[in-house]
Design a protein around this nucleic acid. Structure first.
Length: 895
RNA sequence: GGGCGCAUAGCUCAGUUGGCUAGAGCGCACGGUUCACAUCCGUGAGGUCACAGGUUCAAGUCCUGUUGCGCCCACCA
């Protein structure tokens, strides 16, 4: 496979490439060849820092969707780029057990069998989930491979594997021992469907249309009543007080009095609390400490008892009296009816209010008091805030730093226990004999270390994000002191969606700092959400979810990758347009055919190679050769700069633009005529083609790994795979060549435009006189290219040394200071020609006027940098020359 | 209530520290079988850079305000 010299193959077919690019054929088998060659594992070299990315582990709750394809693409681009830069590069793949979401999908399967998890029992249920996960992990892995992800499968990790599980227990114990994890009775969010506590982040709020009911509470021992307003009247059954603002004159005399709670007839006190807003409603608030976070706080301050009126399944309990057993929604209606009947309902009005729903199952969550495990956040957040503020943790795009800080600085304690069966079991054991609570890193505990009595493990599991938060080090073998951990922690860039900035990124940061004493990564790159063409979110219920492998089957992984990355920019959502995928496929085809074209002369000749690949040609260079190599250098410069700035999409576009609009449209078109020239000329063209195409393939490789590998193998090259070739280094730009060939391009365009506007048949060969002023020798050297591209007959192309006179039977093309006269007697429409040139004259005059104005501006002349002033000077002289040329020509036409 | 962002061509979007004539793809109009490519080639039309001020020699770019849209956070009965 390794190849240092290309043998001439004159007698063989000129190319082994098929006429049309077929992504299916190109991509088949290639991934396995890379894998077999070991390219996905880091190539160690002690002199360089490794580049490490930990893949966000997809939830094993189904297949990958198009959003996964975006992150796989962006991360693979980073990884392949760094691999080409020569960094030891590691990308660790994984999968997440997905806690509630994982349990939920299997519960839904059971429902189809007419079963609940309680019918099968904990052990068998967990086994079912494992079975499900094993099945989909394979599919996810397969999909990731189809996308070309160059990750190290030998290091694949699942959150429930023994290693990460031990990491979870170790961290739990450590935080517990340090007082950062505690168990307590708090008001938490409860999902009645999932039957578990949720963290704040797992509750999704939306404004729903509801009602605000006003209820009268009679004052005991008085004829007075006090009215309170509520959006959840059923909670009045759990009221243990009424609160008013201490300075509210209307109620000051009532503070300390008792009211008689309607329906239940309980006596509850009126208390003062400054959190009450006297301006809202009646200025008096019913207090339900067991079912409202605000009331919970008021209740604590006023020493009111908490009275729970709901069961964990979302029905009312015995404290609800006559409403016991009713589901919450029905109890609400019944309570309102009863109040109306009793004459205690004072008002009912529509009222939009915020309703929290379970992120996973969309059930309305209920705040209720419950004993749960929490992570105390204040101390953990402090260094995580400092890291972002001092800049050791940076965000792409930058504004997410504010978002991150805003959250971190207002953080609440984290509810980590879940009343689920699927997940990491809380490593806490309760002695049945001596009341001891034992936290252990061991997976099981057989007896109480205090008294030897029997122990029972806490039945709950941990929030799935607890294990995710340890991912940057648990994937590397921690808590063992492994070689991987020492070499690859911390990772380099955390690339993930902004939608899990708090869920995941923030938690990795504070866990990394606390457990490892070091940030888990220095850069957070956040991508947006992939949306449909109308900007809608993709969801299973909407039915607009796209399986990436359907797209890759039609257009290829290269096309999907390229479309995703060039359509997106950091932090912004993108609308997936299948036309963009098609365009990317077309681009691959363009590159394919450009290579196919180049391979013919390349195969006939000896291409000089060195350790880097085709040698950069340096002698017998024509203007076009110098130009394309300078443009390649510009592209390398720009692409490299953009990659460094994480502007991968822009880098991809830059490369596409070069390959299509410069290399294919101009260099190759110009090369066609030169390949019919002398052997020496053919040689330099072939060498230039080999050089520029081979370097371009390397530039494009991180974006379109498959097709670039396929083409690179066909091209003269050094090394075994473009995957492990080096990222190109830019040479010195040839400014003169860029300017001169640029003018040649503009001239050809002007000629084509003049021909088209005048209705000259596209295939017609014409004669031309070209006045190129100081560029005469450049134009002379490129006369055949000029002729071929502008369809000027070679023997009737004259490069002249002063502005030509065409009389009335000629078309004029003006580009900069170049003027071309095309004698076309009988075709030229004098009026149309005058009009066309008239427009050009106006444009040139406007150009001149702007330059004159700038150069006449004292402030500009005094303050603008010399470079900018120079540009205006050139602009002035150039536009003046152009005006003179056009005016002269117009005079001729008008004569 | 707090925070963040967006507004550039018919559509989807680029536009790095302010500096040549504001760009791309798609779409649109017209025209093309030249031996790499119709998954293509050529030519063209199309923009008060949301609005109003300000800073500056110079503003799509920086500042302030306005309008419209979006997202996130939050214990607004």
């Amino acid at each position: 496979m390794s190849q240092t010299i290309v043998e001439p193959t004159a007698n063989e077919p000129t190319s082994t490439l098929a006429k049309a690019y077929d992504p299916g054929l190109v991509e088949a088998g290639m991934y396995d060849r890379w894998d077999d060659a070991g390219y996905f594992q880091p190539r160690e070299r002690p002199d360089r820092d490794p580049f490490v990315v930990v893949m966000p582990p997809p939830n094993v709750t189904g297949e990958l969707h198009i959003g996964h394809a975006l992150f796989v693409t962006v991360e693979d681009i980073m990884i392949r780029w760094h691999r080409m830069l020569g960094d030891p590069t590691l990308w660790i793949p994984g999968a997440d057990h997905a806690g509630i979401a994982g349990q939920w999908v299997v519960e839904k399967l059971l429902v189809q069998e007419g079963l609940t998890r309680h019918d099968v029992g904990r052990e068998k249920f967990v086994a079912r989930v494992w079975e499900y996960m094993d099945q989909y992990r394979g599919r996810i892995r397969e999909q990731t491979m189809i996308l070309g992800a160059s990750c190290d499968w030998s290091r694949f990790v699942f959150t429930m594997d023994p290693g990460p599980s031990r990491a979870v227990r170790r961290v739990f114990k450590r935080l517990y021992d340090n007082g950062l994890i505690y168990r307590g009775e708090r008001l938490i969010s409860w999902c009645p469907r999932c039957q578990t506590a949720l963290s704040d982040l797992e509750v999704v709020h939306s404004d729903d249309a509801g009602f605000l009911w006003t209820i009268a509470y009679p004052i005991e021992g008085s004829d007075e009543q006090i009215t309170v307003a509520t959006t959840r009247p059923e909670t009045m059954l759990g009221d243990t007080g009424v609160a008013v603002h201490p300075d509210d004159g209307r109620y000051r005399h009532l503070i300390g009095s008792m009211v008689r709670l309607p329906i239940l007839d309980r006596l509850i006190p009126i208390v003062a609390d400054s959190a009450v807003d006297p301006a809202f409603g009646s200025g008096a608030v019913k207090v339900t400490p067991a079912h409202d976070p605000n009331d919970f706080e008021i209740g604590k301050r006023a020493s009111l008892p908490s009275l729970n009126v709901m069961k964990t399944d979302g029905t009312m309990n015995a404290n609800a009296g006559p409403f016991e057993g009713l589901p919450i929604a029905e109890a609400r209606i019944a309570v309102v009816e009863r109040l109306r009947h009793d004459g205690m309902l004072r008002d009912t009005r529509p009222h939009a209010h915020s309703v929290g729903r379970c992120q996973r199952c969309n059930t309305v969550v209920e705040p209720l008091i419950s004993t749960q495990w929490f992570v105390s956040m204040e101390e953990l957040a402090r260094p995580a805030i400092a890291a972002a503020k001092e800049g050791s943790l940076t965000f792409v795009p930058e504004h997410f730093k504010s978002v991150y800080l805003n959250w971190m600085e207002n953080i609440h304690d984290w509810t980590i226990s879940r009343q689920l069966w699927w997940g990491h079991r809380i490593p806490v054991w309760y002695c049945q004999n001596c009341e001891a609570t034992v936290v252990t890193e061991e997976e099981t505990l057989s007896a109480c270390p205090e008294c030897g009595g029997p122990v029972e493990q806490d039945p709950d599991v941990l929030d799935t994000w607890f294990s995710s938060g340890l991912w940057p080090f648990s994937t590397l073998g921690w808590p063992d002191d492994t070689a991987d951990l020492r070499r690859y922690y911390p990772s380099s860039v955390m690339e993930t969606g902004y939608d899990i900035l708090f869920f995941w990124v923030a938690r990795m940061v504070f866990f990394g700092l606390e457990v490892m004493g070091e940030l888990p990564f220095h850069t957070v790159y956040l991508h947006g959400t992939v949306r449909d063409m109308d900007g809608g979110r993709m969801s299973k219920t909407k039915g607009n979810v796209i399986d990436p492998t359907i797209v890759t089957a039609d257009y290829g992984a290269d096309a999907l990758r390229f479309a995703l990355v060039t359509q997106s920019s950091p932090g912004n959502d993108l609308r997936l347009d299948i036309q963009k995928v098609e365009d990317a496929r077309n681009f691959a085809n363009k590159f394919w055919n450009a290579t196919r074209f180049a391979l013919r002369p390349i195969a006939e000749l000896d291409i000089a190679l060195d350790a880097e690949g085709p040698v950069r040609p340096s002698s017998d260079l024509a203007l076009a050769d110098r130009w394309i190599m300078s443009r390649l250098d510009a592209t390398i410069e720009n692409a490299t700069r953009l990659m460094q700035a994480h502007q991968y999409g822009e880098a991809g576009k830059e490369i596409r633009e070069f390959v299509w609009s410069e290399l294919a449209d101009w260099y190759i078109e110009a090369a066609k005529v030169r390949l019919r020239g002398s052997p020496a000329e053919k040689q330099v063209v072939a060498q230039t083609l080999a050089y520029t195409l081979e370097r371009s393939l390397r530039l494009l490789h991180p974006f379109m790994p498959f097709v670039t590998e396929a083409l690179w193998q066909e091209m003269p090259h050094a090394g075994d795979s473009v995957m492990i070739a080096s990222w190109p280094v830019a040479g010195v730009r040839d400014e003169a060549a860029e300017a001169e060939f640029g003018t040649l391009i503009e001239t050809i365009r002007a000629i084509r435009n003049a021909r088209t506007e005048a209705g000259v048949e596209p295939g017609r060969w014409v004669a031309a006189e070209v006045f190129a002023g100081p560029l005469a020798s450049s134009f002379e050297g490129s006369r055949r290219e000029l002729g071929a591209l502008a369809r000027i007959a070679d023997d009737s192309l004259a490069i002249v040394d002063r502005a030509p006179e065409g009389g009335k039977g000629a078309l004029t093309a003006v580009a900069g200071n170049v003027v071309v006269m095309l004698p076309l007697a009988g075709i030229v429409d004098l009026d149309a020609e005058r009009e066309r040139l008239g427009k050009e004259l106006v444009a040139a005059q406007a150009e001149r006027d702007r330059a004159v104005a700038q150069l006449g501006n004292e402030g500009f002349m005094a303050r603008a940098p010399e470079r900018v002033v120079d540009v205006q000077r050139r602009r002035l002289s150039s536009s003046e020359e152009q005006i003179a040329l056009i005016e002269r020509r117009l005079a001729e036409l008008n004569a």
